[in-house]
Design a protein around this nucleic acid. Structure first.
Lengths: 133, 133
DNA sequence: GAGATCCTACTACATCTGTCGGAGGATGTC
DNA sequence: GACATCCTCCGACAGATGTAGTAGGATCTC
């Protein structure tokens, strides 16, 4: 009934990730990357994943010499944002605060990241955004 | 073959969330909360969700007077952490940094949250954690 | 040009998840 | 005590997703 969109499954996301990490690739290349990261799947499985990703609008393909080359259509950030939004909504009714606190409290950061974080926070502080919608 | 554990579906998470938000409840109460938030599902659907949540270890139940009362077994933070970890792994090979930056850049925060964030960041800065494992 | 390879298109199937309906027991109401 | 209610237990079914086999065309290799 509802426009339930499962969006991306884990395996699909895994395939998409190889495109982000290594750039456009054929089925065989994606397969190879997946194998490199310890994921053992069949060639046709990867093919199915890429086909479905294309149907869902996450990648595009171009017929080149030998085989179709798949290319990510949405950026990693774009997908990240969407997933985060879903998560925030599901867990905290849309309030991102608690989630960020969680992350900062439980994850590890490099000094560079910490510095960047500080910069971001400071900017947040000074620049009050207008409420959304 | 692998211990693929889908964990929680959206509907299941929604039911669990009512327990976090409103405390222990019977099937009918959860149903009522879901209805309140605009989710129209059947009584037996909720029952199924709670049963599955119990099988998966997310909630426990106690037979009281009239009906079973379900109670969240894992905290919201616990589940949040787990989901975030998965997300971070799937999108960034485990590096939480980029995800936090995303969140901070795209979400809205209350002044209080910003203040709390600043506190957290400062603490991060001063207290270099030892590398995990 | 015959066999080995590689690619695409289909098809298939199991599991997980979302959603319910029906049977049958327990309790409340006249 | 007959009916309406409410609860639990089972079973079912559709769609999404993970995984892969097969058929058949195209290409490479001797």
């Amino acid at each position: 009934m509802a426009e339930r969109q499962y969006d991306l499954g884990d395996a699909e996301l895994g395939a998409l990730k190889t495109l982000w990490d290594h750039g456009p690739a054929t089925v065989r290349e994606v397969l190879s990357h997946l194998h490199d990261s310890g994921r053992r799947v069949a060639y046709t499985t990867v093919q199915t994943l890429l086909t479905r990703l294309e149907q869902k609008g996450y990648v595009t393909s171009n017929k080149s010499e030998l085989a179709y080359v798949y290319r990510a259509k949405l950026t990693r950030d774009r997908v990240t944002r969407s997933r985060l939004k879903t998560l925030v909504k599901q867990l905290y009714d849309g309030a991102a605060g608690p989630l960020v606190m969680q992350l900062i409290r439980t994850e590890q950061f490099t000094p560079d990241e910490i510095e960047e974080l500080q910069g971001l926070i400071e900017r947040l502080d000074g620049e009050p955004k207008q409420p959304k919608r």
